[in-house]
Design a protein around this nucleic acid. Sequence first.
RNA 1: CGGGGAGUGGCUCAGCCUGGUAGAGCACCUGGUUCGGGACCAGGGGGUCGGAGGUUCAAAUCCUCUCUCCCCGACCA
Length: 589
Amino acid sequence: MHRWSGLFIPTLREAPADAEVASHKFLVRAGYIRQLAAGIYSYLFLGNRSFNKITAIVREEMDRIGQELYLPALHPRELWEESGRYALMGENLFRLKDRKGTDMCLGMTEEEVMTSIALKELRSYKQLPQIWYQIAPKFRDEPRPRSGLLRVRQFMMKDAYSFDIDAAGLDVSYRKHYDAYCAIFDRCGLKYMVVEADSGAMGGKESHEFMVRTPAGEDQIVSCDGCNYAANLEKATSKLEAWGDLAPEGDGKPLLVHTPGQKTIEDVAKFLGVSPKNKIKTLALMAEEKDEKSGKMKSRGIVVLMRGDHQLNEAKLNGAVATATRPMDEAEIKALFKSPAGYLGPIGIEWARDLKKDSDKPVLLVDKALEGRANLIAGANKEDYHLKNLTPGKDFHPTAYADLRAVTAGEACLNCGKPLRIDTAVEIGHIFKLGYRYSESMGLRVLDQNGKEVMPIMGCYGIGIERILTAAVEQGNDENGFWLPAAIAPFEVVVAPVNVKDEVVKSVAEDIAKRLEAAGFDVVLDDRDERPGVKFKDADLVGIPFRVTVGKKVTEGTVEVVIRSTREVRDVTIAAIVEHFQQLLGRRG
RNA sequence: CGGGGAGUGGCUCAGCCUGGUAGAGCACCUGGUUCGGGACCAGGGGGUCGGAGGUUCAAAUCCUCUCUCCCCGACCA
């Protein structure tokens, strides 16, 4: 039996000064974790115990659909060169040299290793499908680790990879993971939601994220209370309300208007007596991209037009141009537009006709909300002047139209028209149809029924183990501490004798703890010679969902059972304590 | 990488501006009194003040450099 007096549970009265979010404060105070360096944490007794319960659940559910492997974290550089990611990953990849000077790195994900095994071993369609997973540490040199366990540089991940003969097979593997993840998070007692996720630059591939709503999260999710629509903000769309175009003025050709000192959208709209919805917002950006032929880095202007009241969604933009962008500096703006910021517009510049072709010319991306609009107002590329009567496609020719608009809360759902909400959330799992990316780059092939070489299609699937714990703490805490769902708590029940010097109290507590343990409950007996207040405070702090208080009422044959989450207290007879918990936890001994 | 903040016993912090050789609360150890929501009394242990260099008779305090950590941003399979 676990006796608190002999355990290492270093609880703190005060949270460390550098902790901001609830889960960070409480996990440190409760003695679950200690920090070693930025984004690197040690798990102490309680933390590890909870951790083990989570991994056991993950393992059990994953074993239903796949096979567990264990792969090295230390990788040779060559492996990552093969997939092309050694350069791509940049500084997020931990790099080191061995004693011979050979370049190595620490795995931040294991597509390469898994694929290398597959390509060496898989020969025939008869060996497919395969689902391989592991629960193993991952290393990422994050630019900014933060929020305790929420974003760290070393963490435990359940990562799984599927190999199928065709897209229909991948659909099945994907679905299996979707269902397994739901089972895992259900069992962990999390209130989560599944959202459509950004499928990245390639597009067309399915991806879902499993999210837990919490203000501590780093992701924004858009969801609809009216239907089941839910998506990451990076991916979300909404229905636009119709907005009337202005009537053409004069002969309908672009018309120069004097707008002295009017630089912002709001100022110009007010000055001209129109709505920002009839205005074009011009965003000047630069993309640093690699020239296909010379291999040198070169920058290219990316100009984005949005409706005046809309905001750019950077993830969508990055997807559209398949590269990262940054705002143009003053000199770059001057060079392209020949005008100071505040009066920028699309007229008078030769735009690339195609994203791939004309790579020497700047790109003009126009948000879909402007497609089909007419007689808009934009900057004239001349200080103190704007242009009226601008119609996309007629007065200027976009390189491409794209959905670039950030959804804002309250906009109508595309499916059902009800207003959308936006919440912050933490991502606890992500499933992704990889397609042929690694099969292709690393040369994975098997023979099909006709003896012909085909590329297997892959999927990858990840769960952040510590994020399950973090999300659970964020989901259930108050000023005194937190409570975990019984399935992932370090102990299910703490038995707290109010005074261990009272022999009757002490022996009843011992007896109850023993009987609960014998019935299969995970119990810790707080046998410390401490005042009751200390024991109650600690019990409330450390995440154990149930407490049995053994005190004065033993003389009447009862003890108290306290439910941490609701603070509900109930007198239970000593004799019936095991049955009581069997009912509470829905379990038969 | 840009901006901001912080490093002083295990934890939370004061002292720094105005240099004079380190303090409080909690935690810990011993003894006693207590015992249903972080007790009280008495005694005690523990700190090269993140590091290096400089100024000075004298540096936690002033100056320079550096390391680390936190927050915002950029970034983020």
